[in-house]
Amino acid sequence: MSEPSVLYDAQGPRARRRTLIGTVVALLLLAGLVFLAVRRLVDRGQFTMEKWGPLIDPDNEAFDAVWRLLREGVVNTLKAAAVAMVLSIVLGTVIAVARLSLGRVARIPLIGLVELFRGLPVVVLVYFGVRVIDDVGIDLSGWPGGQVFWGLVFGLTAYNMVVFAEVIRAGVASLPRGQREGALATGLTDGQTMRIVLLPQAFRVMLPAIISQLVVVLKDTSLVTFVANYDELLSQGDTIQRNLDNPIQTYFVVALIYIAINYTLGRLAQYIQKRQARSGRVSRPAAATAAKAAGPAQVGGGA
């Protein structure tokens, strides 16, 4: 066993023998599954260069065009995700601060807003952003990027800003009480305390959760395919496979690109979290809250 587990003791000779048998059986089983899958793929002619060539063979005539489309797709996906992310963090901070500083009654509409946007599927919000905004006559086509881009960004922002509001609120709440009391005692106003003392620390604690949420935003950009034409990665893959008639191969490459980007981001979040826990610059209970918020935040997203 590579990591200690609550379920098992260090193994003795008998258990090790059993594990060995299990390993062999499992390997055979998995190899059998892979074999079956590969045979199916071969039978169906899925390994021919005709299908793979445009994606992996630089000499293929379609290679350059295919990868240009994919590159554009990645850029557009990252662009929409980045803008939505920045907007969500800014608006999320505003909502969090408002919720923390308003009175009991004034807080209620904000809580309603958070519950409303958190309860809706992201794809519905993207629909509102792209189609409904257009239909009610709000013209964004003059903005750099165009109507669909901003519609997508607003849809993603509506969902993610309330997620961030919750994350940041948890971050502020996780700070030791002395931070706020100390700041107030030195004569800072409420606003200054929030801005200079509490928020910077909350952001640091919440950095892993924020990066994890970026993965969610990135994945959710692909939802726009159902609503309008925006040339993000998945739509580009769709264009490619319709022209080349190789859905499995194209979507395989598209999936690999998504996985590569998102896996890297996920590891980055983990790394930062570990480093914070080690360096002790973030207090332990705060780090624990961050870990807790990071979990659901990462899964709480849409597609």
């Binding site: 199916r40 169906r44 899925q46 939802l223 395919t225 859905p247 499995i248 598209v254 996920g266 597609a303």
Partner: peptide
């Protein structure tokens, strides 16, 4: 976890028929 749901869906709906 790192693939968008949409990509999983297109794989199921367009990939699996290719495999019969």
């Amino acid at each position: 976890r790192n693939t968008p749901l949409t990509v999983v869906l297109v794989f199921c709906a367009f990939g699996l028929p290719e495999l019969g």
